[in-house]
Simulated assay, not measured.
Amino acid sequence: MYKFVVIAVLMLFVSCGAEKQKDSAKKVSNTNNLTEISIEKPLHDFGQLKAGEIVLHTFILHNNGQNNFILAELVSDCGCITAQAKQQVIKPGANTIIEVEFNTAGLAGKEYKTIEVHGNSKELKHLAIFAEVKNEFIDIKY
């Protein structure tokens, strides 16, 4: 009985999270004002870093379309990354910057992290960062 309750609660949390993602996607896609965006140099290599370092990089987002680009959210695949855009609404022909902060605390080895750019663009865009993190407490052999 205990296992059944635990499984039911877990399923509830997972289904609620998926529903939230669907809702945010519907809000953006229901606008019917899709636009074209591009990211200048969507990949960045930080090179070698020491564990515990916090580094920053700025990406440039261009609105190449005919409609305003409305940035809904920036979704990272890791809690070690925070991303913020200077503007939430980018007019046609305009640019904005996306600042990404990467915290290497507790990491080791070759790291590849991505950030999804959610909004009313025709295609989902991704940003990516690379680094090789040296951690004196963890030795990874390749």
Rank of each mutant, 00 (worst) to 15 (best):
1 M>R: 04
1 M>L: 11
2 Y>I: 09
3 K>V: 12
4 F>E: 07
5 V>K: 07
6 V>M: 06
7 I>Y: 11
8 A>F: 07
9 V>T: 05
9 V>D: 02
9 V>P: 03
11 M>G: 13
12 L>P: 07
15 S>F: 09
17 G>M: 05
18 A>K: 13
18 A>L: 05
21 Q>H: 09
22 K>V: 01
26 K>G: 02
28 V>G: 04
29 S>H: 06
31 T>R: 11
33 N>L: 12
33 N>A: 14
34 L>H: 02
35 T>Q: 02
36 E>Y: 01
39 I>P: 00
41 K>W: 10
44 H>I: 09
46 F>S: 00
50 K>F: 06
51 A>Q: 02
54 I>E: 03
58 T>I: 15
58 T>G: 03
60 I>Q: 14
62 H>L: 13
62 H>F: 09
63 N>V: 14
67 N>P: 09
68 N>F: 15
71 L>M: 15
76 S>D: 00
77 D>N: 10
79 G>A: 07
81 I>G: 01
82 T>I: 02
86 K>W: 03
87 Q>T: 12
90 I>C: 10
90 I>A: 09
92 P>R: 03
94 A>N: 14
96 T>G: 05
98 I>Q: 02
99 E>A: 13
100 V>L: 14
104 T>Y: 00
105 A>G: 06
106 G>R: 01
106 G>Y: 02
107 L>Q: 04
109 G>D: 05
109 G>I: 01
111 E>Q: 05
112 Y>M: 11
115 I>E: 06
115 I>A: 06
117 V>N: 00
118 H>W: 09
118 H>A: 11
119 G>Q: 00
120 N>D: 03
127 L>E: 08
129 I>F: 10
129 I>L: 12
133 V>S: 01
137 F>P: 04
137 F>S: 09
137 F>D: 10
